[in-house]
């Protein structure tokens, strides 16, 4: 893949995150471990997917890598430098798109460039390039409320790509779009990934999606979120939905990850106090038969 193959881009070391949560019965603050001993070395240009039941700390992890929250333990290095806050070398794509509703498509895509103080003319050229890349030419002057969910998602991707971060952090980006749009977006992301050679950490609920996109799939355990196993995805690139989904290896990998997610814990994990209380993994992560 990358010319720099083998060079470590991101080093996550023993990350640990704790939230303090008020116990409903005792009314006292209790520690809640959202992330425990999370270590991963990510090579430059790798596509990492993270799967795990909801509430296992995936978003927490991305927030830490983005520099938006500080971890209670462990460290992150990017290119050998400690991460202390957010920076334009990382782009975060959030689940709810988080587009600025008062900015049209072009102005949304240009936001990071404005922060970077890129001159106006140059900004326009760059934003146009990425708007074209995500297939939104002709919609530059539209506001987010005039776009469909899939289009909004693509604006969010263009916005994160435009200021050219080396690392892309994507939090369940396709969870809210319909199945068909989702496949289109996945192919599009594969195309963009092949073109731009970024290092990507992609959180998803869908095992199929993880296998389709990633070089390595990180399977997490429920509370506290730890790495259960990292599965290498050896499917050849370039990949497309149509080809990958019919290959035999694909089915085997999906099945393997499904089993990892359903393997009972050595000790059953206590249910966290998250909004969903006790979670039923089987309900949340299933290789859907339709796909």
């Amino acid at each position: 893949m990358s010319v720099n193959e083998g060079k470590e881009k991101i080093a996550l070391r023993n990350l640990r995150q704790i939230y303090y949560i008020r116990n409903q019965q005792t009314k006292r603050l209790e520690e809640f471990v959202a992330l425990e001993d999370f270590s991963l070395s990510i090579e430059e240009g790798t596509f990492i997917a993270i799967v795990g039941p909801s509430g296992c700390g995936k978003s927490t992890l991305l927030d830490i890598v983005a520099g938006l929250t500080r971890s209670k333990g462990g460290s992150i290095e990017i290119d050998g430098e400690k991460v202390t806050g957010p920076s334009l070398n990382r782009g975060l794509i959030m689940q709810g798109y988080a587009l600025f509703p008062w900015r049209n498509v072009r102005k949304n895509v240009e936001y990071g460039l404005e922060v970077k103080r890129v001159p106006k003319a140059e900004r326009k050229a760059i934003s146009q390039k990425y708007i074209d890349l995500v297939d939104l030419s002709g919609f530059e002057e539209r506001y987010p409320n005039e776009l469909s969910g899939g289009m909004r998602q693509r604006v969010a991707i263009a916005r994160a790509l435009a200021y050219d971060p080396q690392v892309l952090l994507m939090d369940e980006p396709f969870a809210a779009v319909d199945a068909q749009t989702r496949e289109t977006m996945q192919d599009e992301l594969l195309r963009i990934y092949a073109k731009t050679e970024k290092t990507i950490i992609f959180v998803t609920h869908s095992i199929e999606e993880a296998v389709l996109l990633a070089d390595r799939v990180v399977v997490m355990t429920p509370r506290p979120g730890r790495i259960r196993e990292v599965v290498d995805i050896t499917l050849p690139r370039p990949r497309f939905n149509a080809d990958v989904r019919v290959s035999a290896d694909y089915g085997v990998l999906v099945q393997r990850i499904w089993e990892l997610l359903h393997e009972p814990d050595v000790a059953p994990a206590p249910a966290g106090p998250g909004e969903d209380g006790v979670i039923d993994i089987a309900d949340e992560i299933l290789p859907s038969a339709v796909l």
């Binding site: 975060l92 959030m94 988080a98 936001y111 990071g112």
Partner: peptide, 19 residues
């Protein structure tokens, strides 16, 4: 969420207010 998005793109306090 918008504040978070802006912060992730390196937006400082002053710009966060204005933008």
């Amino acid at each position: 969420q918008l504040v978070k998005a802006a912060r992730s793109m390196g937006t400082g306090n002053l710009r966060l207010f204005g933008y």
